[in-house]
Simulated scan of single mutants.
Amino acid sequence: MAEHDASRPGPPSPCETGAGPSAARESRAARLRRSGERGLRSAMHVWWRLSRGMTLGVRAMVIDGDGRVLLVKHSYVSGWYLPGGGVEPGETLHEALERELFEEGNVRLTGAPALHGLYLNAHVSRRDHVALYVVRAFEQPSAPIPNREIVATGFFALDALPDETTRGTRARIAEVFHGTPATGRW
């Protein structure tokens, strides 16, 4: 599934958002994925807890010139999310942000991102924290190619977010665009 061309006006096409002829297969795959999510998350966090005392992640709200937000859809968890991921040992938040944006969206920073807030992501683990950055200065040389981790990406208008956009993602978008007070919890 292709990333929506930021230079083309309008919302992404059904093919870009995952709808289309293969929707039935995707629905079956989505159901299977959802059924295994809780166990997979638990197993991952047991590993992370054994290997790390606390987990730290970064996410980015990448906003294009038309005010649309970049969202990604993972292969291993349901919903649409802001791009991001874990900070590796020896890596700064900025380095992790650059790496994750490149890996998930083929996005390269061309200016300094703005730290929007730090959040406890207790939905995942009581030890998980996320730093959210707002990114307005970037380039995307080409659309990302779907892979084992990221199956779809797209820039979406605020009034056309995919139905499966997560609650936490919607809350962060409301904070940045509408001034909704931040809660400190993802």
Rank of each mutant, 00 (worst) to 15 (best):
I150S: 03
V46L: 09
R49W: 04
F138H: 08
P83D: 11
S51P: 00
F155V: 07
G105P: 02
P144A: 14
R31D: 09
Y133F: 15
T153S: 15
L82F: 03
K73W: 02
S27I: 02
F138R: 05
W48P: 00
A131Y: 07
H123D: 14
R38P: 00
G20T: 04
S125Y: 02
V62H: 04
F155E: 05
H94F: 14
Y76F: 11
H74R: 09
R52Q: 12
G67T: 08
R126I: 02
E37N: 05
L50E: 05
M54K: 08
L70G: 05
E100K: 01
V135A: 10
S42H: 12
P146L: 10
D128S: 10
S22H: 12
S35Q: 09
L97T: 01
Y81Q: 11
E149S: 11
I63Q: 13
S27P: 00
R126D: 02
E149H: 15
S22M: 09
Y133Q: 04
W48V: 02
A19H: 14
L56A: 14
H94D: 12
E139W: 14
L82R: 01
S22L: 13
M61D: 01
P144D: 08
F102K: 01
R126G: 04
G18A: 08
Y81C: 07
R52W: 05
G86F: 15
G79E: 08
P141L: 13
S75T: 08
G67R: 15
L40M: 13
R33A: 03
L71V: 07
P113M: 10
R25F: 05
G36K: 12
